[in-house]
Design a binder for these strands. Structure first.
Lengths: 312, 312
DNA sequence: TTGTACGCGTTATCAT
DNA sequence: ATGATAACGCGTACAA
């Protein structure tokens, strides 16, 4: 290493890291020797071994292509990445395939966000004492939870519809998952005998297709609640395509509070603090890595009444 | 370590890795001792140092939120992730912030894909001899290139419009970048005095807004070429909103060949092999990590004539 | 087939 | 302010 070249040995370490004061002349000699020998700073691998940390945090998001298709997922990832990045940590994408068990991860974020449960190699991570932060996921012991008021938000939205006089209400659900179940439970607090249209991805075309079949057969509802804004946008478009006016003939509501550029109206929805969810998650990760205890968090939501719902 | 606990010492290493034959009884003892001591396999950090590899590949994509908003970016990421994942490597997201210089990356993918050039800490990576694979980027020495026939594809599309009789053609461009420049150059091969409408992101609303201002003032064109399908979709929607029929009054073309669920017509576009681009990139990365030489690649595109273009 | 010993390149501790 | 030394945990060449 550069030590032999310059003069001293582990003073070089200090010259680079700056953890202890080093006199200016020696520092200069070290850097000069380093560059002449083509040495580009401490080897990250060795540093990692020594410090017991890799500087990499995994984020499990299921199938990548579908996970990021949802506009609610991106700002979350963005916020996580920003906070982690400014702490010098990298973010590693974990698909639902394997092999990641052998990667040195300082922590793992398990972001279900509307996707299936249970595909994560949870036991491996626990065995290796990797801190686990679960976002909107099922309850596992030893992990930190970041959740959102899915149930209360959905209930508030349902109450709004009830206030408008709606009684025959249908629900378009997401795939089975923790947030899906919570949101449905919230809606059922107000409308116990809800008609469930069916389940589909948070995808415009999928929602249109699903609701199209529904409207063909039993249009006997005055409102359709969706578990995501993208689904709601699809429902609005499909309703209009059939000549139904929204909210005149049909009220439509969503969940998330993301932009819906396909619509010229403001969706009635439950706005969740997506960026804050990401920041909170990242800070929880950093705290867990630092060995601190972190309390679970439930983030508040806000009912936004737009133009897509009206009197029954 | 588990060695002391069981009976043997570093035979344990072989028991886990299986690089050399180990007798069944000893292997059993090793595994038993390991689990009773709560030992969960070799420490990835130590293994990495020993092997000189981290198993992590970085992918630089600029601002995360905007990078993945483009539907052409996801399948690429997906393919890269799949190939790398099945080789046991992880994919680390590199935003445009810093700090990643201290992470142990075995290689870096520089995926500009329609974004600004020049923000990558290129020198650092070269200094550390990190293999660099540049996708659709500017030419740097010592890196491997994966490119697409932007220019030829754009020229072919322009020729198609010319054949249809179009002479007054406008262009909606992406942000300054390598593919943007190449695509424009291809279009200009056929229409040297192209009217450039302006530059905008690959975003539905942005394209609508941009072209709306254009149609207000100078609707003296018979065709609008866009540098992405999403832009083209926005242009079609905006044209129709103004009562123009597509392709009756205005022909519109895109680039990419991605799904456009907002439209009920098939866009005339240049289809690029996105998934193959990802797989090719990943294989190039693996080869470079293995120390092999990798030739640059230019992937072919295909002109798809849809319903959005017609006679002038 | 199994055990021994060394080195990967750092950083932290301790002494100078 | 600087230098020596140990240890992080593994892989592997070599010896038994």
């Amino acid at each position: 290493m550069a030590a032999a070249a310059g003069v001293s040995l582990s003073t070089a370490s200090l010259a680079f890291s700056g953890n202890k004061p080093v006199s200016e002349p020696t520092r200069a000699r070290v850097l000069a020797a380093a560059s002449s020998l083509g040495y580009s700073g401490p080897n990250p691998l060795a540093r990692n071994l020594r410090q017991g940390r890799s500087g990499v945090v995994g984020i499990a998001v299921g199938q990548l292509s579908t996970a990021f298709r949802d506009p609610a997922a991106l700002p979350m990832l963005d916020a996580v990445s920003e906070v982690l990045g400014s702490a010098g940590m990298g973010l590693l994408l974990m698909g639902d395939d394997e092999g990641h068990a052998r990667l040195p991860l300082d922590a793992v974020i398990y972001d279900v966000c509307g996707r299936e449960d249970g595909w994560l190699p949870y036991d491996d991570l626990v065995a290796r004492d990797v801190p686990l932060v679960v976002v909107e996921g099922p309850a596992w012991p030893g992990t930190t939870f970041i959740d959102v008021e899915h149930r209360a938000g959905s209930a508030a939205l349902a109450a709004h519809l009830h206030d408008l006089g709606h009684r025959r209400v249908a629900l378009v659900t997401l795939e089975q998952s923790h947030p899906q179940r919570e949101r449905e439970a919230g809606t059922r607090e107000v409308f116990p005998d809800l008609h469930v249209v069916g389940e589909c991805a948070s995808d415009l075309a999928a929602a249109q297709e699903l609701v199209s079949a529904f409207l063909d057969t039993s249009p006997d509802v005055t409102a359709i609640v969706c578990q995501s804004d993208v689904q709601a946008a699809g429902v609005v478009l499909e309703a209009r395509r059939r000549g139904l006016s929204v909210p005149g003939d049909l009220s439509v509501a969503g969940f998330d509070g993301v932009p819906t550029p396909w619509l010229d109206l403001t969706l009635t929805t439950v706005v969740q603090p997506i960026a804050e969810k990401g920041r909170t998650t990242a800070h929880a990760v950093l705290a867990r890595i630092a060995g601190e205890h972190v309390d679970d968090v439930v983030l508040p939501v806000e009912l936004r009444i737009g133009d897509s719902t009206g009197p029954a």
